[in-house]
Amino acid sequence: MTRTLYLHGFASSPQSRKAQYFAANIPDLIIPDLNQEDFGSLTISRQLKQIKPLLTEPSYIIGSSLGGLTAAILAEQCPEQVKKIVLLAPAFQFTTNWRRRLGETTITQWQQETYLPVFHYSYQREIPLHYSFFQDAETYANYAFKNKTSTLILHGIHDETVPIQVSENYSHNRPWTKLISLDSDHSLGNCLETLLQETKQFLFGV
């Protein structure tokens, strides 16, 4: 028996459109709430700590954006438990992209003021996010992925949040990784049927 988990993205939740679409079409899909009712103290390390106890049997992980990065790290750290991963617009080079989007002035201000207001799409309001989120993410900035876990990546060619180049770079010289480029943006919202079909074929052979 193989367990299948879905890790939602940053400032999202198990109630997101994508998560619910997968839940409706993959039986017994586990979708943990990575917000843990405390989005303000979110870190990647906290997500890893939350998910590892769920890997009590061979598992597949589907991860969206930051959840995709978390899934890749879990595959590296728990190779005996994580058998396959599906990464939807995975947030590789995460802090590099945040520095590009926010600018160094905002990053410095965030560090000085401790909190940065971030719009949470599921809660539909701004929530102050602690600087420890960015500080913790920096520790994974140059993470050396050496595992050979069978991997499928689906990424939009119009993604302005996480450029598809990061997935192209990750896939390069990793023959166990398949990258599918889609005519979409970061949300991949116009490709849900394709995401599901490719995921089910990759994970379950159906």
Rank of each mutant, 00 (worst) to 15 (best):
154 L>C: 10
161 T>A: 04
161 T>N: 01
156 G>R: 10
163 P>G: 13
171 S>H: 01
164 I>G: 05
162 V>A: 05
176 W>V: 10
159 D>L: 04
171 S>P: 00
173 N>S: 07
186 H>M: 08
175 P>Y: 08
166 V>I: 09
171 S>L: 01
171 S>W: 00
183 D>W: 10
167 S>N: 11
153 I>V: 07
160 E>K: 10
154 L>V: 07
169 N>A: 14
162 V>L: 05
185 D>R: 04
173 N>T: 04
174 R>C: 03
175 P>T: 14
154 L>E: 05
170 Y>K: 04
185 D>N: 08
162 V>S: 00
186 H>E: 06
169 N>Q: 14
162 V>K: 02
173 N>M: 03
172 H>G: 00
170 Y>F: 15
166 V>D: 12
186 H>F: 07
168 E>I: 08
187 S>M: 10
159 D>S: 09
162 V>C: 05
188 L>P: 00
183 D>H: 14
182 L>M: 14
175 P>K: 07
167 S>L: 05
163 P>I: 11
168 E>L: 09
163 P>E: 12
166 V>T: 15
154 L>Q: 11
159 D>P: 10
188 L>W: 01
166 V>C: 10
160 E>I: 13
159 D>N: 09
153 I>Q: 03
164 I>S: 13
173 N>I: 02
182 L>A: 06
166 V>L: 06
165 Q>Y: 13
184 S>E: 07
158 H>C: 11
172 H>W: 02
152 L>C: 06
152 L>W: 06
175 P>A: 12
164 I>P: 13
160 E>R: 09
172 H>K: 02
173 N>V: 04
176 W>Q: 15
171 S>Y: 01
177 T>H: 07
154 L>I: 11
172 H>I: 00
178 K>N: 11
173 N>E: 11
188 L>K: 00
155 H>K: 05
180 I>Q: 04
186 H>D: 05
187 S>R: 14
187 S>Q: 12
